[in-house]
Design a protein around this nucleic acid. Structure first.
Length: 421
RNA sequence: GCCCCCAUCGACUAGCGGUCCAGGUCGCGGCCCUUUCAAGGCCGUAGCACGGGUUCGAAUCCCGUUGGGGGCACCA
């Protein structure tokens, strides 16, 4: 039987990164096995927010490149089927009515167990499982009834989900057995917690896909990082393309112990991916990101500035802070200009009629100017950098000056000179 | 309270009885390079939670303790 897995989010908000990690394992398994990855929405009502949330979930998955197979299905559409099954269970004496609701009769003795792909044999005493409500008194099925039934109807072969579902599993297995269907294989993957071991939340940093996107992470880097949370192909490999991930992913190698989300490592990895991009592609991503985030900066200029920062930033969102001086005014801190008057003047003089006005010639001219004043490059360029870029930290000075252009550079040098004077 | 899960450097992990006085990556520290910041190169730091077994031999198997986490809804 071909493998078929699913991601079953509830449309309550933006896609959480923890859910993405679980979805990723499902997707990787499906693609590795040549099976199907289904997307099913576990909605229970028809409020307007649902439609928006569904669109956001689809948009996030698309951005990440996690494509799903077959039609998108909704729990809502199977409520009648659930009720029918519940009625049948009542007729068979396997469920009973209780104050308007329908409850499933769980076995009282023995235990319910399964061979979990990541945890091995798990056995839960039946006496600890309460009779479960199948249908609420208002007629709607509960999650623990609808979910396993949908798995049955969809022909799901492997249920790969978070470990928080472990206690639901024996309940669902009993229901599936009661309706005479085949029980799927279960794999409970470990949870992802915050850097402090607590539940990953907003105060730790980005948590939804949208936030990571806004922070300037690349989807391929995010996936690579997420894949390594609870799984590793071996003890050496860390950087893997999407294809390599698919090729090497083995569900049996997923670790049962929980992992902490390390933002610093994600940043490092994103930087690796950013630097591996061709300069054209890097520029393209920058332009796209800026466009998505409200920056109306000239694409041509952004593309020319891109090479100056490609090795310096770890996230696309750092670009404005690094290269903003090319797109707007600067306000140098007078204190950082202190003592720079001679070099500012010398620089202005050196650049006034320099030809050609290019990084290489600019460098030669400025080094000569520094030399003439008996200054070390380090101390000489500092005030010039501050005057021109507005900061002590910037892309290469000479390239920056070339890009900025003679006029703007000279006016900034004069403005700074006026301040120190 | 009851049930379940987990346990190797600060973090992610490799290790599935001897090849491990435990390897890789991030982070951190140092050095080199250097116009700032990065990037890059080199070196270094740091771990098998504890206690019992089993075995000629345990990070690897078993039991217990401790410590984390999850679940006990007419939520999903």
């Amino acid at each position: 039987m071909p493998v078929r897995v699913r991601m079953a989010p509830s449309p309550t908000g933006l896609l959480h990164i923890g859910n993405v990690r679980t979805a990723l394992f499902n997707w990787l398994y499906a693609r590795h096995e040549g099976g199907e990855f289904r997307l099913r929405i576990e909605n229970t009502d028809t409020s307007r927010e649902v439609a928006e949330a569904v669109d956001q979930i689809k948009e996030s998955l698309s951005w990440l490149g996690l494509d799903w197979d077959g039609p998108l299905t909704f729990q809502l559409d199977r409520m009648d089927d659930c009720r029918q099954v519940a009625d049948g269970l009542v007729a068979d004496g396997k469920a009973y009515e209780d104050e308007g609701a329908i409850r499933f009769r769980m076995p009282d003795e023995g235990s319910t167990g399964w061979d979990d792909v990541v945890r091995g044999r798990v056995e839960i005493p039946n006496e600890t499982i309460e009779d479960l409500v199948l249908i609420r008194s208002d007629g709607r099925p509960t999650y623990n009834f609808a979910s396993p039934m949908e798995d049955v109807w969809d022909g799901i072969t492997h249920v790969i989900r978070g470990e928080d579902h472990i206690s639901n599993t024996p309940k669902q297995i009993n229901i599936i057995r009661a309706v005479g269907a085949e029980v799927p294989v279960y794999a409970h993957v470990p949870n992802v917690s915050g850097p402090d071991g607590k539940k990953l939340s907003k105060r730790h940093g980005a948590v939804t896909v949208d936030e990571f996107r806004k922070d300037g992470y690349l989807p391929e880097a995010l996936l690579n990082f997420l894949a390594l949370l609870g799984w590793a192909p071996d003890g050496e490999t860390t950087i893997m393309s999407r294809d390599e991930l698919v090729e090497r992913f083995l569900l049996e190698r997923v670790s049962p112990s929980p992992a902490q989300f390390d933002y610093a490592k994600l940043d490092w990895m994103n930087g690796i991916y950013l630097r591996e991009l061709s300069s054209q592609e890097f520029a393209h991503r920058l332009v796209m990101w800026l466009g998505e985030n409200g920056y109306e900066w000239d694409a041509q200029r952004v593309s020319r500035a891109a090479p100056l920062v490609q090795e310096k930033i770890a996230r696309l969102a750092e670009f404005p802070g690094f290269a903003g001086f090319l797109f707007g005014e600067v306000e140098p801190d007078p204190a950082e200009l202190d003592g720079g008057a001679p070099m500012l003047a010398a620089t202005e003089e050196a650049l006034v009629s320099l030809e050609p006005f290019e990084a290489e010639s600019i460098e030669t001219a400025l080094r000569a100017a520094a030399d003439g004043l008996g200054l070390k490059p380090r101390q000489a360029f500092q005030p010039v950098r501050v005057a021109v870029t507005g900061s002590k930290v910037s892309p290469g000075l000479f390239e920056s000056i070339e890009l900025l252009g003679r006029e703007t550079t000279l006016s900034r040098l004069r403005a700074a000179a006026a301040v120190v004077a």
